[in-house]
């Protein structure tokens, strides 16, 4: 729905239409027309064990036949893999994890922005090819609102052949915590926390703030103190809480880029030169083991 929104806006600027490619069943897919889709292409459901790569030839054939200006794909794990292979097959340029996209009337090109160097830089690029392609991270754009009804022609695409990759088993992850991207307040565990047991201190702070805890990559990946679903950063979860408070977080660029959309960024660190202070609204220079209990007491007043 988010892709339909931005795609629809761009289509109206370029004076073309928008087609939706989906694996949803026909009755569910019909609703895309209510949101402006001119055409809905249905991919046949995959057989048991068949992997998404089975769709690549089907989608590539369709793209060659239809010759679109732009192909947008959701930047999920499967979407990114599929899109990159499709881009290679179509010999197309692609903007990965695109943050903004605009149509330039003068050059008749799509101008796209994305992050570089772990978030330290913003790169503006355009594709020299037709089609242009982009993968767009979930929640980058608003979902489409009910619109002037598109013609919504539904078309079924050919059944894909066997996939080279076979799925043997799917293990659905059971969430240990609520979705961190939905948290209103996040107290974040950084490497300044000495030992695993001390996470309870950060947890108490989160509770005093009526929020949840998160962590930096080393805490999840190297130390395994918390599972990955708590991990915040450009290559983990990007979050946008009202308040983010880093507890012993140094402020590596990949991490702070993941919290750049927080309303208020606060930090506690004993190193006054920690990079987190350069990107924080409010910073306490002090030992977290001294500061956090005082902070909890003050919040409870």
């Amino acid at each position: 729905m988010e892709l339909l929104n931005i795609g629809g806006q761009l289509a109206s600027k370029t004076g073309t239409g928008i087609s939706v490619l989906t694996v949803r069943p026909r009755d569910k897919a019909e609703e895309y027309a209510q949101f402006g889709a001119d055409e809905i292409m249905l991919l046949a459901p995959l057989a048991a064990g068949q992997s998404l790569d089975a769709y690549i030839p089907v989608i590539a054939d369709e793209a060659k036949a239809k010759d679109p200006d732009l192909i947008l794909v959701s930047a999920t794990a499967k979407g990114k893999d599929l899109a990159a292979r499709l881009a290679a097959r179509l010999d197309a340029g692609m903007c990965s994890s695109c943050q903004t996209i605009n149509f330039d009337e003068g050059s008749k090109k799509f101008i796209m922005e994305r992050l570089a160097y772990g978030g330290a830089g913003i790169q503006k690029i355009t594709c020299t090819t037709r089609p242009a392609m982009a993968t767009i991270p979930p929640k980058t754009f608003e979902a489409a609102a009910p619109a002037q009804k598109g013609s919504g022609n539904i078309r079924e695409l050919p059944v894909p052949g066997p996939s080279a990759v076979k799925i043997l088993e799917k293990k659905v992850r059971e969430r240990e915590a609520k979705d961190i991207t939905e948290a209103r307040v996040i107290a974040c565990v950084g490497r300044g926390v000495d030992k695993k047991e001390d996470i309870s201190l950060v947890r108490q702070l989160a509770e005093a703030l009526d929020g949840d805890i998160g962590c930096t990559r080393p805490i999840a990946e190297e130390l395994h103190w918390l599972s990955e679903e708590f991990c915040i950063g450009i290559s983990a979860s990007e979050v946008k809480p009202d308040l983010y408070i880093g507890v012993g977080v140094s402020g590596q660029v990949q991490h702070v880029t993941g919290v750049r959309n927080a309303k208020i960024i606060a930090a506690i660190n004993k190193d006054e030169n920690a990079p987190i202070f350069d990107v924080a609204d409010l910073g306490i220079i002090g030992d977290l083991y001294d500061v956090v209990p005082k902070l909890i007491a003050e919040l409870k007043k």
């Binding site: 881009a87 010999d91 197309a92 340029g93 692609m94 903007c95 101008i111 992050l115 570089a116 978030g119 330290a120 830089g121 913003i122 790169q123 503006k124 690029i125 355009t126 594709c127 020299t128 090819t129 702070v256 880029t257 750049r260 960024i265 606060a266 006054e272 202070f277 350069d278 990107v279 924080a280 609204d281 409010l282 910073g283 306490i284 220079i285 002090g286 030992d287 001294d290 500061v291 005082k294 902070l295 003050e298």
Partner: peptide, 29 residues
């Protein structure tokens, strides 16, 4: 297949107000 137009530093502009661990500063924070 990609043409780079520009590369700029990301702006993460924040207030950067600093506090100490003193009781008065914690209250102010």
């Amino acid at each position: 297949r990609i043409q780079a137009i520009s590369l700029e530093a990301a702006k993460l502009e924040r207030n950067c107000e600093k506090f100490t661990a003193d009781a008065a500063d914690i209250t102010r924070f």
